[in-house]
Write a protein that binds this DNA or RNA. Structure first.
Ligand code: FES
Ligand code: FES
Lengths: 148, 148
DNA sequence: TGCTTTCCCTATAAAGATAATAGGATTATA
DNA sequence: TATAATCCTATTATCTTTATAGGGAAAGCA
């Protein structure tokens, strides 16, 4: 389940992606336009900046802007920052792998095998969808073909 | 994220799927073999029975057994019973659709469009993987082909 | 230099979901 | 009738998510 935090983050990023490149936008403006609690959004944007998704400037004429072109920021990257690994189970995660303490043998665990498939399917969508793709009304051509 | 409840449910079902058809197994046996809290597992199996996945018998010689052939029980069905809709957002769910109160226009919402793709990708894996598929070492042939 | 605006940072509270426990009621069998 | 099992409801404990609060630090401007 996508957290509210991820949803807010994506909404903010999509708004920024629709601005002319380099244009600074205030937290307050984003919060108001997207109906997100101001202080909560601050935390979110701060984290995105620390992870290299956003660039910020303080003081007058300050604000936030994308640190990279909107084609180079994927949903997968954003959601991983906000919510952690995409995989439904830690043992099925590539980036955030953690052993299952209560499973007897990981190599033969059927649940893990299925969840690895799920994680791959999810990552295939989210890592191949950039902010630009989503704004250009969605789904890049390859994936649309695959889904049908 | 898959809940512990779903994981326990799947472990129990896979154990039952490995028995000779019709063989009754006690909650206690499952709990012990799979290292699941007994009373917690009771709740889980009870719910699976109510949803038509399991058949049970009380009293001496009682226990649980699959209510259907293991080929006819999918991961998707089980996880929906335990955790609810597969979609990462209510607005992207087919079975459990709920409107997004804080999104301005659902039809143009880019987040929703992407999450619909995710939900389809996930459902495609989970609704096409039965207990039997998983035990037969995984992934049915069609999906393996698709994933590559 | 001081004033204002803005992001930056840490801590904590409020609410909700998940995980687990408890205790007994009911049913089937021997 | 005794026993062994599922069935059912309620409650607690723990963790996660969501949000709020209050000030600190930098950038710009007069
Ligand atoms: S090894 Fe992770 S679910 Fe079995
Ligand atoms: S409509 Fe559900 S996320 Fe926008």
């Amino acid at each position: 389940m996508l957290s509210q935090k991820s949803k807010y983050a994506l909404r903010a990023l999509l708004l920024l992606a629709r601005q002319p490149p380099g244009e600074m936008v205030l937290v307050g403006e984003i919060a108001e336009q997207q109906n997100v609690p101001h202080k909560f959004l601050e935390l979110i944007l701060l984290e995105l900046r620390k992870q290299g998704i956003l660039f910020s400037q303080r003081g007058r004429n300050g604000g936030y802007t994308l640190a990279r072109p909107k084609e180079a920021i994927t949903f997968g990257e954003v959601i991983r920052i906000m919510d952690g690994p995409l995989a439904p189970l830690p043992c099925a995660s590539v980036a955030g792998y953690r052993r299952c303490v209560d499973c007897q043998d990981e190599r033969t665990c059927e649940i893990r095998q299925v969840m690895c498939s799920v994680r791959n399917a999810v990552a295939d969508v989210l890592d191949n969808t950039s902010l630009a793709d989503a704004i250009a009304n969605g789904l890049s051509r390859e994936r649309t073909a695959l889904a049908s």
